[in-house]
Amino acid sequence: MSLTRILSKSLRLNFQLSKCLAKCFSTTISSKKIQLNTEEKSENVLKMADYDSRGQRPIVPSQYRHIYPEFLPDPKQEFRNKLREKLERTDMMARRSVIDIPEFYVGSIVAVTYSEPHAPNKTNRFLGICIQRTGCGLRAAFVLRNVVDHMGIEKEYYLYDPTIQQIECKRLEKRLDDELLYLRDAPPEYSTFPLDMETEFLPDGAEVPVNKIVIPLKERPWRTKWELHDMKGLLPETVIAGKNRMKRAAAFKKPWEKYDLMKIYRETIPDEEQQAIYSEVHSKLNQLELSRKKMKRKRGFVRPTKEH
């Protein structure tokens, strides 16, 4: 009888131990499930942070690709690196939070204040018309031209250069061409602007005006054979050359390129990728625009004074 009692007790103990182990195992499994569910929910929340309430990407204004062209990467595939491009975008947004980079185009009058160690006040300022915008990302640059003391001066600035202290758009407008390099061969009055030019403001919500001025060229020699380029902002009478030059110009033209879809595809970024890029920086850019508008209102507001 003693053996049977001992065996029964051992069986009971084993049964109780198995119950305890089963409970512990079930609790660990449930806790792991809860952790997995919370992790999945947090990942979904992080993923949905870039989307709106309908589960779609935020609607980015179509003019962003014209206002902020430097956020688009180089369309050449051999120069693409998605990690580098994303890091550059974060650096660009950090720089924009420090300095106000206004909207401007080729043809706008822009003033740049930058630090220079050899200047008397350690700063220098240059104002001119923007004749070219090149590059992308942190390598985005623009060229300003002005005629000072009957001498044409051009300066190239990197848009996100840390030595730049202030960028002011004195006159916001566009021109008929994407580049105004022909101003080098034009009369100097078309490139002369006062260095103390006052800012010309546009009403809120107004479209950027297009200056349809047609510029004549000086007599030859020119720096470029402008008859080979289809420039809308040049006076045709000044570009007309001799018969031999016109024949060369006709042979140089490639009218079929505007129908080459593969060439257009290789030189542009797809709309889906543009939407994805601008959706990353849309919220921050929107906040910067709102703060800029508030600053403009504060500058325009004049506090009334009491008359004694």
Rank of each mutant, 00 (worst) to 15 (best):
S2G: 04
L7G: 13
S10P: 00
S26K: 15
E43R: 15
N44L: 15
M48K: 12
D50H: 03
P61G: 11
Y68W: 13
L72C: 06
P73Y: 01
D74H: 13
R80V: 03
E85D: 09
L87H: 10
T90R: 13
A94Q: 07
V98E: 09
V98T: 06
I99K: 15
E103W: 07
G107M: 02
P120F: 06
N121F: 15
F126Q: 01
I131C: 11
R133D: 03
R133P: 01
G135H: 06
G137H: 06
L138P: 01
A141G: 03
F142W: 05
L144Y: 04
L144M: 00
D149S: 11
D149W: 04
I153P: 00
E154K: 10
E154P: 01
Y160M: 09
P162V: 09
E168M: 11
L172M: 13
A186D: 05
P188C: 09
G205R: 04
V210C: 14
V214I: 15
K218D: 12
E219F: 04
P221T: 11
K232F: 02
R248Y: 12
A249Q: 11
E257H: 07
K258D: 09
Y259S: 14
R266F: 10
E273S: 06
E280W: 00
V281E: 08
H282C: 06
K284Y: 07
L285K: 09
E289S: 13
K293D: 07
T305I: 15
T305G: 09
K306M: 14
